[in-house]
């Protein structure tokens, strides 16, 4: 459903992304791993053009996103939900307003200004809040929630867009290990329920292995691994991250204790 063709992004002479080609199937959960600065964030931001790529194409279900005009891009962005590392909620707005902001691409400016969203959207927002486990918290201000709760708001906001693709940028990096696992489980469950495809940027290799269908390794802007989670062995990790003793990381059962201890 998503085809990324020869995508590249240069900042001056520095190549953040270098000729990246990959494709993602219907309902497929793909983890994107790699060291900091490898271009993971740039890659997913190039998909919905929060970052403008300098070369290549991104084709979502037959629509080439890279050549769209600004207004057409707005339209296509509705099909792509995004979840952020530091939640990216608007802190002074309530939970409900944050969730409803997922419908901004569907409602007119004046309606959104006076916060009169269609009743169907509000119903769906209540349903999603209940689904992500935030029932009854709709009037809290976003900055009054815990990290895990905030990320749940972020997830509800992205899903209210009724997207076909989710871009997930380090969803667990600011969370404790237990909450991180819960959030990853929630994201993967929701994707399965709705048949959503997702690209998930993630630092945590064991989490990636246990919740995704495929893993793509990125190093210095290039794809260096693309395969099933089981194929991810010490050798591959070394090509992605560099030399290190990986014995703890590849035994995913032992990983949890390791995290808690860290």
């Amino acid at each position: 459903m998503l085809e990324i063709q020869a995508l590249s992004k240069r900042y001056g002479s520095f190549a953040a992304l270098d000729d990246v080609t990959l494709s993602i199937g219907e309902g497929e959960l793909v983890a994107l791993i790699g060291p900091s600065g490898a271009g993971k964030s740039t890659l997913i931001r190039c998909v919905n053009r929060l970052v403008e790529p300098t070369g290549g194409n991104v084709v979502l279900k037959g629509t080439n996103l890279t050549t769209l005009s600004r207004s057409a891009l707005r339209f296509e962005r509705r099909r792509i939900g995004m979840i952020f590392q530091d939640y990216a909620l608007v802190n002074r707005l309530t939970v409900m307003e944050n969730v409803l902001s997922g419908r901004l691409g569907y409602v007119g400016f004046l309606r959104s200004l006076v916060r009169r969203f269609p009743q169907a959207d509000v119903d769906e927002a209540f349903r999603l809040l209940a689904r992500v486990g935030l029932e009854g918290l709709h009037d809290r201000r976003a900055d009054a929630l815990s990290g895990g709760q905030r990320q749940r708001v972020g997830i509800a906001r992205a899903l209210l867009q009724s997207p076909q693709l989710l871009l997930v940028d380090e969803p667990t990096a600011s969370l404790d290990p237990r909450t991180a696992r819960q959030i990853m489980r929630l994201v993967s469950e929701l994707c399965r329920e709705r048949g959503l495809a997702a690209i998930i940027n993630i630092h945590d290799v064991p989490l990636a292995r246990s919740f995704t269908d495929r893993i793509i390794g990125l190093a210095a802007g290039k794809i260096v691994f693309n395969g099933a989670p089981d194929a991810l062995n010490d050798e591959v990790l070394t090509t992605i991250y560099g030399d290190e003793d990986w014995s703890q990381t590849t035994q995913s059962d032992a990983a949890e204790e390791e995290e808690v201890a860290a």
């Binding site: 919905n48 929060l50 707005r74 339209f75 296509e76 962005r77 509705r78 792509i80 939900g81 995004m82 952020f84 530091d86 990216a88 909620l89 608007v90 802190n91 002074r92 707005l93 307003e97 902001s101 997922g102 419908r103 901004l104 691409g105 569907y106 400016f109 959104s112 200004l113 972020g154 906001r157 992205a158 867009q161 871009l167």
Partner: peptide, 26 residues
């Protein structure tokens, strides 16, 4: 905080919606 603006942008919001939802509250 720019990430809030990015989040609202990625929902397909227009410029004015971005201003009212992500900039004004801040």
């Amino acid at each position: 905080e720019w990430n809030a603006v990015e989040a609202v942008t990625s929902t397909g919001a227009s410029w004015l919606q971005r201003v009212t939802y992500a900039v004004v509250p801040q």
